[in-house]
């Protein structure tokens, strides 16, 4: 662990000012960052603790809720409004990590957790994300957990968050404070980026830009989140899926699908959405949507199975949801 300074700040302004320089980082729950620091994967010289900033409230808005970035994963999952209106989010949160980790992990920090690629974690192996230009040992190595969509020749890592997949599926907006002052709003599906030539950059936040809130809009009527994993708790997703939609006269309206465990970012299945939007549910349609989404999917060897698995999951999940809805109707 590299020596670092630690400080707490009074407000957002002080926080962004303190982290605007190189090698400074915000500390939320620390459930990921501190581990990474111990193993010298992250080597910040300055840590600014933002977990005590006044962002621990969940407020009701006109059509949804506004979640403070310091709200813990446990608190968010247990929130009565979240459970009632956004069960997809609550399910996703509860499927992640363990109770102890969720008690510490924050909403803002969850978005910014780093990949679990084993080569990223092993400082003795080549990883472009950890050490730009060093290469990628996951390619041609152990890559069962790796990306099938949007990967590059430089990086095939996946984003590990369940919560972020849920937020993308729900069309959440992320509010930030900028280091130079001012605020901006970023759609959740635009926060993270694909690896391309710069896999060391996970997201589009500027140095020192602080997530303060996450806004959820009108809750879709039908929602689901499903995580596929190797054991029934405390396991990262092999793949996962979030689906949210309304129905208008038996046709999909504003359908959104988020996929986890398949890409460098929580993957918005825009191609599948396009196939489904405005159409009446049918098995053939679901298969067409899954095929459209996975048309360019590419396996790396160990993870080849994720392509048929994801296809099965998309089709089965849509069938289950629409069957449930039909039964209810």
């Amino acid at each position: 662990m590299t020596p670092f300074s630690y400080s707490r700040v009074a407000d957002d302004k002080a926080a962004v000012a303190a982290v605007s320089g190189e090698n400074a980082k915000f500390l939320g729950g620390g459930t990921n960052l501190v581990d990474l620091m111990k193993h010298e994967i992250e080597r910040p010289e300055t840590l600014v603790d933002v977990s005590r900033l006044p962002h621990e409230e969940i407020e009701k808005t006109k059509d949804g809720i506004r979640i403070g970035a310091a709200v813990t994963n446990s608190a968010l999952a247990a929130d009565p409004v979240v459970r009632e209106k956004y069960p997809l989010l609550s399910t996703a949160l509860l499927s992640g990590a363990t109770q102890q980790l969720r008690n510490r992990a924050t909403t803002g920090g969850n978005f910014l957790q780093r990949t679990r690629c084993q080569y990223f974690y092993d400082t003795q192996r080549a990883c472009n994300k950890r050490e730009p230009g060093s290469g990628c040992d996951a390619i041609g190595g152990l890559n069962r957990f790796h990306a099938i969509l949007g990967a590059s020749e430089n990086c095939i890592a996946v984003h590990p968050s369940d919560m972020a997949v849920a937020m993308v599926t729900l069309g959440a907006d992320i509010e930030t404070v900028l280091p130079q002052g001012g605020v901006r709003t970023i759609p959740a599906d635009a926060l993270h980026r694909l690896p391309g030539d710069t896999p060391h950059i996970d997201h589009q936040l500027a140095q020192g830009e602080l997530i303060t809130h996450v806004v959820l809009h009108k809750a879709p009527e039908f929602q689901m989140y499903r995580k596929v994993r190797d054991r029934s708790s405390y396991a990262f997703a092999v793949v996962s899926i979030g689906i949210a939609f309304d129905l208008l006269e038996g046709h999909f309206l504003k359908i959104r699908i988020g996929l986890g465990g398949v890409a460098h970012k929580p993957w918005r299945a825009a191609r599948a959405e396009e196939v489904l939007e405005g159409k009446a549910p049918s098995r053939a349609l679901f298969e067409k949507a899954a095929d459209a989404e996975l048309a360019e999917a590419k396996g790396q060897g160990d993870n080849d199975f994720k392509i048929p698995l994801m296809r099965r999951l998309i089709v089965a999940s849509l069938m289950e949801m629409t069957e449930k809805q039909e039964k209810a109707a």
């Binding site: 084993q118 974690y121 003795q124 192996r125 041609g140 190595g141 054991r231 029934s232 708790s233 396991a235």
Partner: peptide
């Protein structure tokens, strides 16, 4: 314990990645 046979390196060297049965299993 997954070994990258190119290097003789165990790669899943923690209990998040080396899976044992947890309570729910």
């Amino acid at each position: 314990s997954l070994m990258d046979l190119r290097y003789g390196a165990f790669m899943n060297r923690d209990l998040a990645e080396y899976h044992i049965a947890v309570n729910r299993d």
